[in-house]
Design a protein around this nucleic acid. Structure first.
Lengths: 199, 199, 199, 199
DNA sequence: AATGAATGAGAATTCATTCAT
DNA sequence: AATGAATGAATTCTCATTCAT
């Protein structure tokens, strides 16, 4: 399981335990993402611990409150999405980049929304790291939008706030209904037509 | 606090008591609608009882579980909206009727969504009376949509499922963000443009 | 599960449940007084519930926090002692009255101190009803002191603060050591000699 | 339960390590004395470790239970005070020696009492090394008392048990109330007058 | 010998639901 | 039919103590 590493602190040895702890932390985050992502019910921290195969106290050692755990889960997810967005900033086709990312976010939404709601339930105020990460994602999304508008693929008279609200809304719709590929596509058709430049 | 009161059989009518009970039932529903509509947190049944001015047991006499109470609240709300829809079926301008109703539902959504989430939290499966009422509302909405399409105000290649999903999505967007009149209008502009017939 | 209790409430009787509840409340207070009075360990609310023969939630119905429970227990005890003091205010022999009351408080102290410490542990700030009751007891004690001084039984150059502190100290000494009648008497001999007028 | 550890005979001196360990042990004791002396709440062992700059396991290596740690802290304190007492046994003025030491113990009490209470909370029975050290302190105090009585400064009809109880009581009074120099002095005036020889 | 991660047994508090009147 | 007191099963979080390195 563990690396042998420098037995007696002879110098080279490092952080063996740390690796273990880090693995636990990651597993807890993964499990929490899944458990809370299921949404609906309000899952308990104990459930997370059980599925992660650790004691409840271990969860609380890594995340001092339930809110902190949810923040971390959500922030990680936002961060991943922002990275996606940033990777698309140099894409050859700005229109495709924007629309594809929009599609991707909607498809990815269900789990995220469950987590966000659990966070609200747990009393998360908008001041945590998740909010920060959310803002950054929104900015990256805004950059994609701007490029798409400059490329003439998205009408000029819309701005980030309403487009983002639309994204959130469609995501929420997709979250609870999980409409299947087909209907999600038809939904997006309408929305994208609404976003297309007026003739 | 309340005396049993009105115990004296009033002869012919036992309906007097019934009236009392019915009034209580209505008041409980009203209060529950408000309390749970506030959304966010999960309000307690006891809170509802207190604000309704009845004992907690009275709430449970009328609605055997919290889920049942939420179902009733939600069903009543769906019914009201369906009535609105049906009233618009004979409107002179089918386009106006559809779009106006769409707008109305979105504006009305925040409270409803709060209730629906509370219902999910309370373990409400989609099989109750609320689901039934929801289906009926959807049908009425579908009728309005069809008329608007026949009138050429809404594009022909969309169907109820995706339009309804879109409605739900925009409603959800409006729910948590309460964007204010302005942004809601801009949001609807995009959506309605997307729904307009292609040239 | 429920004791028959107060069954006889037929005649003029009302509030039968109320009577039950009141009995429960009293029993909880009694048990809590004993349990926390034992001092030392930090007794749990669950222990109180179990010994009182009620569910834990019942304790919390009557006293919304552990602190509130402890406040109530302590306040009740202070109130009883204050009543004793007030009853002695008209005693024929002011010296006997004061010294006797001093003796009584010391003998009564052990349990009280345990409770007070539990209250501190539970985060009781000095602002509750117990503090209020404590202040009133101190005032009554002060009145007895003043009378004893006027009667020439207690030296004139001492004032309430230090005498009360002395009372507290001796009480605390008696609390943990429970020295038995004998030694308590010898202790009080010293203190009372110290309080006697200088020649 | 214990690992064999340190199995490899290191031949000559193991004392180097021992010095390190001893330093750690002393630092832990110092920190614990301060932390628990603050009284009130119940401080955690982890807090002690953190402030001492060692890992939690190190604390438990030196003191196998929290109780053992508290015993050690308290015993050390008792020992120090006993040394003070023994140093005063040869003082020129036995009355001054006794009264001064009494005063000193009262002033020093607050921290000690906090520790003692933490010990009780942790389930310390009176059988540990602290009790032993306490007994020795009491004996030294008794010797001072006897000398003062022989010198005619303290009345003859009091004996160690009640005087010591009085000391404890006044100390306890001073502990929670921290009355300030002034009132402590007035308190001691009364007590010392009570201890003075009857005329 | 030292470290810090992991653990499980509580503890306070809440809430939907039932019972006795 | 109405009341409100009682209930016990959760849930979040803490802490002394042990384990693996």
């Amino acid at each position: 399981m563990n690396t042998p590493a420098g037995r007696r602190g002879t110098g080279g040895g490092v952080r063996v335990q740390r690796a273990d702890a880090r693995a636990n932390r990651a597993r807890i985050l993964d499990v929490a993402e899944e458990v809370f992502g299921k949404g609906g019910e309000s899952a308990s921290t104990e459930e997370v611990a059980r599925l992660a195969g650790v004691g409840i106290a271990t969860v609380f050692r890594h995340f001092p409150t339930k809110t902190a755990l949810l923040e971390a889960v959500l922030a990680r997810r936002f961060d991943r999405q922002r990275e996606q967005a940033e990777a698309l900033l140099n894409a050859a086709d700005p229109g495709q980049a924007f629309l594809g990312f929009f599609r991707y976010l909607v498809a990815d939404a269900p789990a995220k929304i469950g987590i966000a709601e659990a966070l609200l339930d747990a009393g998360g105020d908008g001041g945590g790291e998740a909010a920060q990460a959310s803002t950054e994602l929104r900015q990256a999304f805004g950059a994609l939008l701007q490029r798409a508008q400059q490329a003439g693929v998205i009408r000029d008279d819309v701005e980030l706030p309403e487009v983002y609200a639309l994204l959130v809304g469609v995501s929420r719709a997709a979250a609870r209904e999980h409409p299947g590929e087909q209907m999600r596509a038809r939904l997006l058709t309408i929305v994208f037509d609404g976003l297309a430049p007026r003739l």
